[in-house]
Amino acid sequence: MRNTIKKLACFVLLLCAFTTSALSNEEKVYRVGLEDVDYYPMFTKIDERSKTSFLVDVMELFAERNGLKFEYIHLPVTRFDEWYQQDDIDFRIPDSPIWSVKTDNLVFSQGIIKLRADTVVLKQDESKPLSSLKVLGSLYGFVPGPHWRDHISAGHTKFIYESSMSVLVRMLKKGMIDGLDVSIFVVHHYAKHLGYKPEDFVASSQAPSTHFSYQLSTMSYPEIIKDFDAFLVASQNEISMLKQRKNIFDVK
């Protein structure tokens, strides 16, 4: 009888140990903060998440290669600097040191795609002098590029904001504004969607610009950032194919 009780006790202990181990190894779902803005093909608003955006495609390829699982949380860009503290996220994408005021505890990945913050104008205005760019459009929550700060402070340039890229592209096409402080790839996507010729929208040759990259950031998982950096190197061909599908490319 005592042997039977001992065997039963051992079985229960083994079962508990197995259950505890299984629970501890249960797959963690990492929360990734995304800007809830109309900015396809880079990323999308929450109500358009059925469309596969470039950054989510990259993250899902990384997850597949590394046995990870991500949940994408669309958050207001106006609270961008507070996402980690207020919204309990594990990662933020896209991110860049040039946007983030609070960077002390942030770890950034290498660049996912190299971009240049240009001023998009109509083709016929490509060579117009900088002094003619008096009113520029951008999305709510976006911050003017650092190359525009002095012009804004001096009162030479004014920014207006809308919640829709389609509205901004229409405003530029109709001459209601002089340019757009957004990605030219995004402008081309919405121009085509609106029935305009994408080639009619170009980067101003006279306006200042800034080079930067879209990066992944975290406060809590620097080891995953290291894995992500290794993934970016090992998966260059696959990522290049994702860029081609979305008609975007690295800017030199």
Rank of each mutant, 00 (worst) to 15 (best):
G179V: 06
P198K: 06
T78I: 07
D81K: 04
F185S: 14
Q206A: 10
L8A: 14
L106N: 01
K246L: 07
K252R: 11
L15G: 03
L13D: 10
E26C: 13
K197P: 01
D81W: 10
Y40A: 04
S209W: 01
R149V: 06
F11Q: 12
K69W: 00
D181L: 13
F80V: 12
P144H: 01
F228K: 03
S204F: 03
P76C: 03
A117Q: 15
E48W: 11
F91C: 05
S24H: 11
I152W: 10
S100G: 02
L61I: 05
T19V: 08
N66L: 01
L180Y: 04
K51D: 06
R92Y: 00
S205H: 13
H193C: 07
S204T: 04
F142Y: 15
Q110V: 07
L168I: 13
E35A: 08
V187N: 02
K123I: 11
L23W: 04
D181C: 10
H188A: 03
G141D: 12
M176W: 08
E27Q: 13
I46Y: 14
L13S: 15
R2S: 07
V107D: 02
A22Y: 03
W148K: 10
H188W: 11
Q110K: 12
F70N: 04
G137D: 05
Y140L: 15
D88H: 07
D36F: 00
V186Y: 09
Y30W: 10
S50A: 12
P198T: 08
